[in-house]
Design a protein around this nucleic acid. Structure first.
Length: 153
DNA sequence: GCCAACGTTGGC
DNA sequence: GCCAACGTTGGC
């Protein structure tokens, strides 16, 4: 069992969308390190959804689980998509997607400030300077600490 | 293989 | 909207 944190922009695909869809495709990852994490995901892995780029509501918003392991991200071949990658071909599939299932939405937004103040997250990559990874691993301890905060009212 | 230029991310 | 930090590209 592995634990992850996955960033999304809530206006593109946030917790509200996933809650509605129940199972959603996590695509558009265009960073090799993040892609490699995507490829190492297993069915049943736990993941925290994190909303980024929000003026008021940046932070962890809920829990997901991995429903389908990595497969070629269809948006890389879609000329209409903003994620289209001219260098991707059927023989050279550069990018991967997974499917995630909605588990629950936090009752409380866990903001960056809150997370910075949590001893359990001292070494979390999310909080390190200049961190830009959109998919990153968490320890069970880090994951549990965020969920506990999120479900406290 | 180095590295300058450029593009992107994401907090503020 | 700004800009620091980091990743990628491409000339050499």
């Amino acid at each position: 069992m592995q634990y992850w944190l996955m960033k999304s922009e809530p206006n593109v695909y946030g917790i509200t969308h996933l809650k509605h869809d129940r199972v959603g495709q996590w695509d558009g990852v265009r960073n090799y390190q993040a892609r490699n994490f995507i490829r190492s995901m297993e069915v049943g892995d736990c993941a925290i959804m994190y909303h980024s780029n929000m003026k008021q509501a940046t932070g962890a918003v809920g829990e997901m689980s991995v429903e389908v392991v990595a497969y070629p991200d269809p948006t890389q071949f879609d000329k209409e998509s903003e994620y289209f990658d001219v260098q991707s071909t059927p023989d050279n599939q550069r990018w991967s997607a997974v499917k995630v299932r909605f588990v629950r939405e936090f009752t409380t937004l866990v903001t960056l400030d809150t997370m910075r103040a949590m001893p359990a997250l001292t070494h979390c990559r999310l909080l390190m300077r200049g961190n830009r990874l959109s998919v990153l691993p968490l320890t069970k301890n880090e994951y549990d600490a965020i969920v506990t905060k999120g479900m406290s009212s």
